[in-house]
Design a binder for these strands. Structure first.
Length: 216
DNA sequence: CGTTCGATGCACT
DNA sequence: GTGCATCGAACGT
């Protein structure tokens, strides 16, 4: 075992094809350090958005102010607000000039669960103690809230910043590919990658789980 | 189990 | 002014 098991992913990693990055990010650890503390979680769900020809990719209309990070160097965070409520975080992929990114959709909480609960409860009048641990970062809007990610993190370098993705050595986790969810165009591509049996994955459960839920 | 619907802010037409 | 890469509560089966 190497001296350091925590290796921050390099820009060369992100420069690869988006589908490969989406697959390889499963099992890696997203970390955010703030003055309030450190929060982190294992990535269990990703989606690739690739190029101007992908109608669901924010680069589809061509370069704009908002999607500028997609056209920049790989390994940068692309964060934006959607539905006026939720921040979504992506890792920019592929060489600069080729607009593409991988959306991080769900984590299994690893460190800072208490801070995650405080952030999740913020603004709602409800206690976050009722949320099961695997629900704290289930869904792209929930995970950014739990980790304290907002527009201020847009454009941060994921390879050196307080916001980063680490390889902690859990390679080879089985994955499944499905259609992307929550979109109305470009649904034909199976560009959503999920850890096969993680309870933290968002969306409807796989068909084979149906009928088994109540018998667990 | 399923579907519907309101909250909310920014970028783009 | 319109349209979202969402979430969770409130319903109807």
């Amino acid at each position: 075992m190497p001296r350091s098991a925590f290796i921050v992913l390099s820009s060369e990693f992100y420069a690869q094809h988006s589908l490969l990055v989406a697959r390889e990010l499963i099992g890696k650890v997203l970390v955010h350090e703030t003055p309030a503390g450190l929060t982190s979680g294992v990535i269990v769900e990703t989606e690739a958005y690739i190029g101007e020809s992908d109608p669901a990719c924010h680069a589809a209309p061509g370069p704009t102010t908002r999607n500028a990070p997609l056209y920049g160097p790989p390994g940068v965070a692309y964060v934006y607000l959607n539905y006026g409520i939720h921040y979504l975080v992506n890792a920019v992929t592929e060489p600069a000039g080729r607009p593409a990114a991988v959306l991080i959709r769900a984590l299994e909480p690893l460190e800072g669960e208490g801070l995650m609960r405080r952030r999740r409860a913020r603004g709602t009048g409800r206690p976050a103690e009722l949320i099961p641990t695997h629900g704290l970062c289930r869904g792209p809007g929930n995970l950014t809230k739990a980790l304290g990610i907002s527009l201020r993190q847009n454009g941060l370098d994921l390879t050196s910043a307080a916001l980063r993705i680490e390889d902690r050595g859990s390679a080879g986790r089985p994955v499944e590919w499905t259609r992307r969810i929550g979109i109305t165009v470009g649904v034909e591509h199976e560009w959503r990658c999920t850890a096969a049996d993680s309870p933290a994955v968002s969306g409807p459960p796989p068909a084979r789980w149906r009928g088994r839920v109540n018998s667990i």
